[in-house]
């Protein structure tokens, strides 16, 4: 069981991730945006953060950078639905993320990525 924080603005995606991660047996908490995610991290320790790339206000890259600055050991998986040209793994990894997931991904891919990140 891994303590995971999911930062995602889309409610449906949030719900689907919750279902999928819980079915894998992970401890999952949620935040709707980057600011909220960082607040949650201050309240509680997470092993892994799965964050969306494109969000209103603070986006995934900034959030990742903040997280890594405050908690260097924390693992971050960036996920993106593509668009705006920021969909390459390289960009994601440069920001400090451990892995990159291209939406839509399957539960299997998600699990593989979590295993890979930890």
């Amino acid at each position: 069981m891994v303590k995971i924080l999911v930062i995602e603005d889309d409610e449906a995606v949030r719900f689907a991730l919750m279902v999928a991660l819980q079915s894998m047996g992970h401890d999952v908490e949620f935040a709707c945006n980057g600011e909220e995610g960082i607040e949650k991290c201050q309240e509680k320790t997470f092993e892994l953060v799965i964050t969306d790339l494109i969000m209103p206000q603070k986006d995934g890259l900034e959030t990742t950078a903040d997280l890594k600055r405050k908690w260097p050991d924390i693992k971050v998986i960036l996920m993106s639905g593509g668009g705006k040209g920021i969909d390459t793994q390289e960009v994601a990894l440069n920001s400090g993320a451990t892995a990159f997931l291209s939406k839509p991904f399957t539960a299997r891919e998600l699990e593989d990525c979590i295993v890979f990140s930890l």
């Binding site: 279902v19 639905g81 668009g83 839509p104 539960a107």
Partner: peptide
């Protein structure tokens, strides 16, 4: 197209995940 694809990817994400998890269970 990129914008549409991005939106669709976000739409497909829960469908794909939920259908897969549901199917597994």
């Amino acid at each position: 197209a990129g914008g549409v694809a991005h939106s669709f990817n976000n739409i497909f994400q829960p469908i794909l995940l939920l259908s897969e998890v549901t199917l597994n269970e």
